[in-house]
Amino acid sequence: MKVKDIVHLLDLTVYSGEQGLDREVTGGYVSDLLSDVMGRADTGQLWVTLQTHKNVMAIASLKDLSAVLLVNKQKPDANTAEQSNEEGIPILGTTMGAFEVTGKLYELIR
């Protein structure tokens, strides 16, 4: 399943990195601890978090994640969105909390 399919099915906002909407999503990882994501997330996964600062994109890029999904109406910082555009890794948003949106994601991509 592609990032754009998930955006459509879960009615997500696309904040940045539109050119990466065709990336393939191979799974998901949910965490707000950056070292946890660094150590345990894997290539192609969609990262669900409430962290909005620029280091999120450094990790998404280093780990070759497919996209970042911000929960609870969080929006990316300006320099975070900028790096997302440069890397072509989309930042998405939802009004849902992590529990709810992760449940829906799991049904879609498990």
Binding site: L33, L34, M38, T49, Q51, H53
Partner: peptide
């Protein structure tokens, strides 16, 4: 910021 969880060195 989500750093400093004491996982860095073990990673």
């Amino acid at each position: 910021m989500g750093f400093g969880a004491g996982m860095g060195l073990s990673n």
